[in-house]
Simulated scan of single mutants.
Amino acid sequence: MDPSIAVVGPGAIGTTVAAALHEVGRTPRICGRTARERLELHGEAVRIAVPGPVRIDPARAGGAVDLVFLAVKSTQVEAAAPWLAALCGADTVVCVLQNGVEQESTVSPYTSGARVLPAVVWFPAEAQPDGSVRLRGEPRLTLPDGTASHVVLDALRGTRCSTDVAADFTSVAWRKLLQNAVAGLMVLTGRRSGMFARTDIAELSLAYLRECLAVARAEGAVLGDEVPHEIVDGFRSYPADMGTSILADRVADRPLEWNTRNGVVPRRGRAHGIPTPISDLLVPLLAAASDGPG
């Protein structure tokens, strides 16, 4: 029997997951802040409409489910707490589709003892002005090796969202964090991926990534010296107009995930006695871009 599933946060990531589930007949409950009749996912080879409505009242959540995909940003976890309270039971798994390496400590206080499962999200999906989501590649999740992961694997079996399990999840999570961290430069320039074609930006990015890499290794990640170059080369290979969620939030004047994506590096660096001079410059600028004042 298929597990009962809810998606909390029908943005770019949540819509992609909901569409993948709906496409194979496992339509989840959709929970969010804004009432909508349906969700829409489209791309070069896909167009899926997920029937709603989007539930906006946690009191009408419908009871506990087997699996919650929590697809809100780290800045929105506290606001999503009523949904977690309404949807979580003792056996619920909460799969956190969120940036960073601190999902468990961030989300666990709101799940009433339900199991929290971090995930690394590889979704080239972008929210569009009309509320639809554009998918620009194959969606993929990486999960830690453990019993809770089997609930997610079962839910997503046979869908367009591929899922793999990593024995060394720490290394995978920190590698993705490095990618997210350097994407923060796009906020400070107001530019998309094409900016990484500049030699000066590439050099700054490499220096920043090497700083992040030192902290990642101190945290237990096994990542080689080649990783900074691979990440910069990846940005250079993307379409020049490829954006990122933190840039979209900046353009829309929404709070930024600066602490989750960038602030974690100097915080963890201090704990290990590792200097982070580039972070010490970038993080206050990102924080000010997010939170002001001014």
Rank of each mutant, 00 (worst) to 15 (best):
A288D: 11
G194W: 01
L21R: 00
A289F: 04
V222W: 09
G14N: 04
A240I: 09
E102R: 10
L177A: 15
T276S: 06
G11M: 08
P82E: 11
R115V: 14
E226D: 14
A90S: 14
D57P: 05
A59P: 08
R29V: 07
V77R: 03
P109A: 11
V165S: 05
L256A: 04
G25W: 07
W258D: 09
M1L: 10
V50I: 04
E230T: 11
T147P: 10
V172E: 10
A20E: 07
D280L: 02
N180C: 09
A252Y: 04
F123E: 02
E138L: 05
D164F: 12
L247Q: 03
D291H: 12
T106R: 13
E230F: 12
V101R: 10
G234F: 07
A19D: 08
G25C: 02
R198K: 12
T260H: 00
W83R: 05
E230P: 13
V232M: 09
T159M: 14
T244C: 00
R55A: 12
I246R: 00
E126C: 13
V17K: 01
S205M: 08
Q98I: 03
L67H: 01
P239I: 07
V46I: 09
L135M: 15
V227G: 08
L282G: 04
L286N: 09
R254N: 13
A85T: 13
A125V: 03
Y110I: 02
P82L: 02
V121L: 00
V116I: 11
V96S: 15
E44A: 15
D241E: 02
A221F: 13
V152T: 07
L87P: 06
P255C: 02
D200C: 11
A248W: 03
A197I: 01
E226M: 06
T15Q: 03
S290P: 03
A125M: 08
L209Q: 06
V121N: 00
T244Q: 01
A81Y: 10
G292W: 08
L256F: 06
S205R: 01
R267I: 01
G158W: 05
C31E: 07
A114G: 13
A119R: 02
E40V: 14
V182S: 00
P266L: 09
E126S: 10
S74A: 15
A271K: 09
R198A: 10
A287C: 12
E44P: 12
G63L: 11
V251F: 07
F235Q: 02
A218R: 08
L282N: 01
G62H: 07
A71F: 03
A218C: 07
L97W: 02
L39M: 05
G100L: 05
R210A: 06
Q103P: 00
P58R: 00
V251E: 11
G32M: 02
L178F: 13
V251L: 09
L204V: 08
